[in-house]
């Protein structure tokens, strides 16, 4: 693939990198949240838009990542090992393991699809939310408080990401590195196989490909990204609660991704970013009407623009530039 296809994402990254120069500290802090939500949206875009698995419980992986990160960096597992890096790794591994177990349960044999899958994933996320609300060793309903910020330790060098601006550039680097990597990866043979899986999985089986492995791998990939997003989220917020693993966040990420465009990573990212930004900006003016508006916009966009409100114009731009934006 030519690097030209990465130009739109690169442009976006440059624009975002310039934002802290014109925004005040509060808004840079908010941008950090939007970046993490965008990363979370990428995970659902991979699973749903590329893998064709409509997962209505994506927050399960985000929440697992969040809780594992909180437990590690607060020293609740091993008091001596509280490094952010180990926390992030543990968070991603835990999310992936859960995804592999759940994926095997859901997809082995004839597998569950469509509506069944949707209802079953909702049930899973509701179960986890209930579990965490009542697991008192892990904070129960109140969650875990005082989670330390991200730290970096190289030999004697030690740095804590307290301020919004350095944290913003760190998150920007992480999120866009993953976005670029995914865009390149989805353009490879693996991406082609996923397209085939979405199109007609019986035919793919007929050609000798293992459907189960493919589905589980894309499910796990999504879970790893969601787990990372959850881990980063708690270091910004300092707070892990059962809402992070539950139904509401699963709904929200679904709406961001569907509004943006599930079949285009960049659009899914922007969907989260723009929706969250609009919420922060408009929810004061619109108050309770905000949710009503989002529900209505969502309905209209599903009926009229099923490819997504952001993906449709971006696709047009891509056509004009003769590139395929992912």
């Amino acid at each position: 693939m030519t690097l030209r296809a990465l130009i739109p994402s690169f442009t976006l990254m440059v624009i975002l990198a310039l934002l802290p120069l014109v925004l005040n500290g509060y808004w840079v802090g908010q941008l950090n949240y939007y970046l993490v939500y965008g990363l979370f949206a990428l995970s659902l875009s991979v699973v749903w838009g590329y893998g064709g698995i409509l997962c209505l419980g994506q927050a399960a992986f985000f929440g697992i990542g969040a809780y594992v990160m909180a437990l590690v960096t607060k020293g609740m597992i091993l008091p001596d090992i509280t490094s952010s890096l180990i926390g992030i790794l543990a968070a991603m591994i835990a999310a992936v393991l859960f995804a592999l177990v759940l994926g095997f349960f859901l997809f082995a044999g004839r597998g569950v699809q469509g509506a069944y899958l949707a209802v079953m994933t909702i049930a899973v996320t509701l179960m986890l939310e209930r579990l965490m609300s009542n697991w008192y060793a892990l904070g129960g309903y109140n969650g875990l408080l005082d989670i330390p910020p991200l730290t970096l330790q190289l030999g004697d060098f030690f740095y804590e990401f307290w301020d919004a601006a350095p944290l913003f550039y760190l998150l920007l680097t992480i999120v866009f590195a993953i976005l670029f990597a995914l865009q390149i990866f989805m353009n490879s043979r693996y991406g082609l196989l996923l397209t085939a899986l979405k199109g007609n999985q019986d035919r793919l089986t007929f050609f000798g490909y293992g459907i189960l492995r493919l589905k589980m791998s894309v499910f796990a990939l999504g879970a790893a990204i969601a787990g990372l997003a959850g881990a980063l989220f708690v270091t910004i917020d300092g707070f892990a609660s059962p809402t992070l693993i539950g139904f509401t966040l699963s709904t929200e990420v679904l709406i961001w991704v569907a509004l943006g465009g599930k079949e285009m990573l960049l659009a899914a990212f922007l969907g989260a970013f723009v929706t969250r930004f609009a919420e922060g900006w408009l929810s004061e003016a619109l108050d309770d009407f905000w949710l009503l508006a989002i529900g209505a916009i969502f309905m209209v966009s599903v009926v009229l623009l099923p490819k997504g409100l952001i993906a449709t114009p971006l696709g047009k731009i891509g056509e004009a530039l003769k590139i395929r934006i992912r």
Binding site: T251, I255, L291, G295, F298, V302
Partner: peptide
């Protein structure tokens, strides 16, 4: 003709209805 999209559309509807009742 798009059964999966009915999940999404009615989900949007459910959010809107819930919020309409809250309002």
């Amino acid at each position: 003709h798009r059964p999966i999209d009915t999940i999404l559309a009615t989900w949007g509807l459910s959010i809107a209805l819930k919020q309409a009742v809250v309002l």
